[in-house]
Design a protein around this nucleic acid. Structure first.
Lengths: 215, 215
DNA sequence: TTCAATTTAAAACACTCGTTTAAATTAAAC
DNA sequence: GTTTAATTTAAACGAGTGTTTTAAATTGAA
């Protein structure tokens, strides 16, 4: 066992970078295997299919992030039973930034992958995430809902999807946006700065009182 | 000239529906031409290439929507020089709903196409929209900025992209979301209801005061 | 009716894709 | 050291893509 640097890992490393940059369906197995310097057929040998490779790439991050995020939410709520929406969103920042210790650019890559995953391929990835990590998602929804009791569940359903859209879209194009911001405004933001910019936006949107006239 | 129902129009009608549903790269020309009941080669004859067909599909909506939206913004601001952010967002609702008179499901289709366009194919569509409709976009950005003078330009840049993400993502998956909302909460929303739900969310996020500590 | 231009039609082209096959190589077990 | 299993390699497969070509049909004007 164990050759030069583990073919399986080489594939995952090359794949996650390319998937995050270009999306899943725009990234061919031939491109992945040439970047990883492994044989084309080794993808199907080690992972079975491209779909399963995609899931493996995401799982490598989700298996780390989801438990850490859940712990952080539980921690902030036990420290302050009336934790605000902003507190809950903010508690996710550290688990996100911890992913940079996993691999370089880990945080950005993970968020971009998440964005690609929700935008592309309606079927298998959404199913994979909700069935494998559903309990963590429920915990998150519960924490958000209880921090803003004035928002009825149906309205919260919509607002959390608005939030998902904001995050996913922003992160999928975060590289391009930070470049433009640097050119146009002289701002030099890293991924943490973007995360800290988006949280107040999300908190305000999710917790804004419902206008009864418009319901 | 002028045959049974204009091959060019048949192609555009079939293409916009499929593009909105499945995305651009996931929709083949063969699927379009079979739904439109025209020959495969007629796409390249009438439009030159798939890229130009995509642009033509979007242009058919943008040429109607952009001037109407600009007029609406000018109108609301001349009626009230201190029009709020909510007023400006709300002024876009009518121009959006007018698209339903153009074609059935016009509003939904247009918003979904816009979402697909910004998510997929980084290059040619973004270039096409900003060069052909840039003056309308500038007018919109100006109106939003002046309605919220407490938000500095660099911060507004980010928040408008957050907003774009919210709209684009929500609309690209609006069909799926309304179905879930109906099943889980018994809510039966049409596209107008979704639009009216998202506006307060966007207004609150864009106009929330900047936290100086986090800059 | 004739003629030229436009439009449609069928077929093939050149390419990329994910996947599979079968042989060669490497590592592990005995 | 031989046998056995695991892994890597190169090549081909079959299906799908956008596009082009060539010929036939249709159309509007002379």
């Amino acid at each position: 066992m164990a050759n030069r640097s583990d073919t399986k890992t080489r594939i995952l490393d090359a794949a996650e970078k390319l998937f995050a940059e270009r999306g899943f369906s725009e990234t061919s197995l031939r491109l992945i295997t040439s970047k990883a310097e492994v044989n084309l057929a080794s993808v199907n040998y080690h992972f079975g299919s491209k779909k399963e490779l995609i899931r493996a790439v995401l799982a490598r991050y989700l298996d780390v992030f989801m438990p850490a995020a859940a712990d952080a939410i539980v921690a902030v709520r036990s420290a302050d039973a009336n934790a605000s929406l902003d507190d809950i969103f903010s508690s996710l920042v550290n688990p996100l930034l911890e992913l940079n210790k996993l691999r370089s650019e880990g945080t950005t890559t993970f968020l971009q992958l998440l964005g690609r995953g929700y935008i592309e391929s309606q079927g298998h990835l959404r199913w994979f995430i909700t069935t494998h990590y559903g309990k963590y998602l429920s915990l998150f929804v519960k924490a958000v809902s209880e921090s803003t009791p004035h928002i009825p569940p149906a309205e919260m359903f919509w607002r959390l999807h608005f939030t998902l859209g904001t995050v996913v879209f922003t992160m999928a194009s975060a590289d391009a946006l930070t470049e433009i911001a640097a050119a146009d405004f002289g701002e030099h933001n890293d991924i943490e700065a973007v995360i800290r910019k988006v949280i107040p936006y999300l908190s305000a949107g999710v917790s804004v009182p419902v206008n009864k006239d418009a319901m």
